[in-house]
């Protein structure tokens, strides 16, 4: 029985992933977000390369990371907020579709979309390898870090989207929370709770990846942050359903 339920939830999850991908990629969002991301990222990163004169991928990652925390909530704002607004969520609840499948499926689709939108940034690695001799380690680790950060920010964006029926509100709440996490380490030297707060800083975690280190605690942090956001989002969805 348990096994049966598990396969059912898994099947539903994949169905949700497929549907979300179609819905996202038939909307203008990923195209506009992708174009914006690469215009800004390209300009800033090429300036960095010019200033440093070294085949360094490192500066790419904090730039991309910051752009992602601003843009991923835009990709995720629709997911739950819009379904709650239009009532299509009711149809799924009436089936009923397991909340877990809904939340995980939507998150996975948002994450995959983010990765696809981000993917052309790897062209810079190709350019570096073509024109210079970059260290591969930081490139691999940096992109791994960006992928994990995207997962976490997609989770946060989804959570924000679950809290409201308004897409702009969802995007702004998601960005705000991600921004707090980005700057969590600032001023950590001066307060007693500082070290704990610094542990939540996604920018510090990303910096470690960008330098070329894959640290179990950094990987774990992003995984756990994602899991926490999804657990919270599932509870909110369940709570809004059974008011």
């Amino acid at each position: 029985m348990r096994g049966l339920r598990a396969t059912r939830a898994t099947r539903a999850t994949w169905a949700v992933v497929g549907k979300e991908l179609v819905v996202l990629w038939t909307s203008p969002l990923p195209y506009v977000v992708g174009a914006l991301l690469h215009i800004v990222l390209g300009t800033l990163y090429v300036n960095q390369l010019q200033a440093r004169g070294q085949a360094l991928a490192q500066p790419l990652f904090p730039l991309a990371g910051f752009l992602l925390i601003a843009l991923v909530p835009i990709l995720t704002m629709r997911t739950l907020a819009d379904e709650a607004r239009t009532g299509s969520l009711d149809l799924l609840h009436a089936v009923p579709v397991p909340t877990r499948a809904l939340v995980v499926g939507k998150w996975l689709a948002s994450w995959v979309t983010t990765l696809v939108v981000l993917a052309p940034a790897t062209l810079f690695a190709v350019l570096l390898a073509w024109w210079g001799n970059p260290d591969r380690g930081p490139i691999i680790a940096g992109f791994a870090g960006l992928a994990l950060l995207s997962a976490a920010v997609a989770g946060v964006g989804l959570l924000a989207s679950s809290l409201t029926s308004s897409q702009p509100v969802a995007a702004m709440v998601g960005f705000f929370v991600a921004l707090l996490l980005w700057f969590a380490h600032v001023g950590s030297e001066t307060t007693s709770a500082g070290p704990l707060l610094a542990g939540f800083s996604i920018s510090e975690r990303l910096r470690s990846f960008a330098g070329g280190a894959i640290d179990s605690s950094d990987v774990g942090f992003f995984v756990l942050l994602t899991a926490a956001a999804l657990v919270a989002a599932a509870t909110v969805v369940q709570g809004r359903r059974l008011r």
């Binding site: 539903a12 179609v22 038939t26 909307s27 239009t86 009532g87 299509s88």
Partner: peptide
């Protein structure tokens, strides 16, 4: 107020709901 998903085709939407059931 029936609402599906704007981006999906009719068949795509119904396929999705069929898999959910």
């Amino acid at each position: 107020q029936f609402a599906g998903y704007d981006g999906m085709s009719v068949r795509g939407y119904l396929r999705f709901m069929a898999r959910m059931k």
